[in-house]
């Protein structure tokens, strides 16, 4: 259960940083900018070897926020490089994230077939 606790803390903490980036940059920063910034930061931290310790601590708390997507892209590239050489640099990122990306495309398509936007509030 301690893993769930740390996932909560790390995941919540990353979201707080993103929220602050959004709120303190009022009018100039949109959620899209924050998400792009997060994935870039995740990739850079991963390259510097700083993101893996966060994953070790927070588990899903570090992999589920979109920074984890940047981390997965970098780690995938580096892993495929060791397996396939330089071409792995180009294949690794998508290999590592293929499951998620395919899932989201297929589910998005299916959802659009079955559902319509709803009105509330």
């Amino acid at each position: 259960m301690i893993t769930v606790f740390w996932a909560f803390i790390v995941g919540g903490g990353l979201c707080v940083l993103a929220q602050l980036a959004l709120d303190l940059g009022v009018g100039k920063v949109t959620p899209a900018h924050v998400l792009v910034g997060a994935v870039v930061v995740g990739a850079i931290l991963s390259g510097l070897g700083l993101y893996s310790p966060l994953v070790a601590l927070g588990g899903a708390g570090a992999t589920i926020p979109i920074l984890g997507f940047g981390h997965a892209l970098v780690q995938g590239s580096l892993r495929d490089f060791t397996l396939r050489g330089w071409v792995g640099l180009l294949t690794g990122g998508f290999t590592a994230t293929a499951l998620g990306l395919s899932t989201v495309v297929i589910l998005g398509f299916l959802a659009a077939l079955l559902f319509n936007p709803k009105r509330k509030y």
């Binding site: 959004l22 009022v26 936007p117 009105r119």
Partner: peptide
């Protein structure tokens, strides 16, 4: 944004 997109409003 699209209607179902979850964003906070200023």
């Amino acid at each position: 944004y699209p209607i179902e997109h979850g964003t906070q409003r200023h």
